[in-house]
Design a protein around this nucleic acid. Structure first.
Lengths: 191, 191
DNA sequence: TGTGTAGTACGTTACCCGTAGTGGTTGCAA
DNA sequence: TTGCAACCACTACGGGTAACGTACTACACA
């Protein structure tokens, strides 16, 4: 098994690209080779199996999707209130548009997790972790809204994400900002 | 091109099953043949291409997912109010659990639509139609909650659906009923 | 008896996969 | 500086699989 960290991450990045563009069906070692611009057979040398490739994709995609810490810090200079929460949600939304590839690959992974117990466990643990981080961030950051509110926002944003990524014509893009504002407004209890 | 309606729907049903179980990757004419218990090559005779197969799956899956009219009528005997809306949402949720296969296939179709403009258009039109039906049903049925409320519930239920289908461990099953109740309670404006 | 569909069998095609083999680069030691 | 050893990129090949479509036969029904 060859170990060249740069090349390995390059291959995994290529795999993410292929996954988003061609779907699970198009994700083959050869396709990864081609996408990464490396000779045929290279992916074979770096990953023992398709499952291992997916596992590494799963590990890398979170880093790709996760926000940079300074990015968050910048937004969080504003006073705590519903407006700030709205801003955060809109920011998530824009992030999905900006990195369609990453989020689409994530969706493909979710579907794949349906059939791969190990992948499912890993993805579940990570997603659960980030959700708990969100909850803690919200609570300790002094943002308005209880635990239930955060969970509801999480679900609605997940749904919005799915819609935008797969069938953008169903919920018109012009409405999304208004919907996000209404979501925050209604879901966070007054007080 | 052979035309035997029964067999055709049987094949499409088999394709839905394969799509949910093995994903887009596993959806081949041969796999459909095997799943439907018909001789190899049959699917080839019934569908000119993979795209045509997917188109027919898309046409049939909506009927499979759509509720029977009497089912709705039965629930709608209750007095109009938040409780009834909660009941309806819980019913959607149970429906997803009961027909995992159908909804998983639907998810696979959404992802596939990412790469197939024709499929995307058709799916978008249908989904948009059912969403507008929902909105009309809600309005004309005298249920509480404005248009925004229905859209927000749609998004949250979509998110919940995705979570349950792909990573059921992230949002614990014990919480879902409470979340649905809270969703309805908060999203529908008082009045 | 003729048309159309079910079932069988087959050949072609297209990838996909892994690996053996080669050459080049780097690092270390004499 | 030179020689050696390890590692990795790259090429090329061969095996294998499975998917696909179709020609062919059998049968039912009009």
């Amino acid at each position: 098994m060859v170990r060249n960290p740069e090349r390995r991450t390059a291959l995994v990045d290529a795999a993410i690209e292929v996954l988003a563009r061609d779907g699970a069906r198009g994700l083959t070692f050869r396709a990864v080779d081609a996408e990464a611009g490396v000779p045929k057979g290279t992916a074979s040398n770096y990953f023992a199996s398709r499952g291992e490739l997916l596992a590494q994709v799963s590990g890398q995609i979170h880093q790709r999707i996760a926000p940079g810490p300074d990015e968050v810090a910048e937004v969080m200079t504003a006073p705590r209130g519903r407006e700030l929460v709205t801003e955060l949600m809109g920011w998530i939304n824009r992030r999905v548009s900006a990195d369609r590839t990453g989020y689409l690959a994530m969706l493909e992974l979710r579907l794949e997790a349906t059939r791969r117990p190990e992948l499912r466990e890993e993805l579940t643990a990570t997603m659960r972790g980030t959700l708990e981080d969100d909850l803690r961030f919200h609570r300790e950051g002094g943002l308005p809204g209880d635990r239930t509110a955060v969970l509801l926002m999480y679900l609605a944003m997940t749904g919005l994400m799915l819609e935008q990524l797969t069938l953008p014509g169903v919920v018109p893009a012009e409405e999304t900002d208004g919907l996000i504002a209404a979501l925050v407004d209604r879901v966070i209890p007054a007080g």
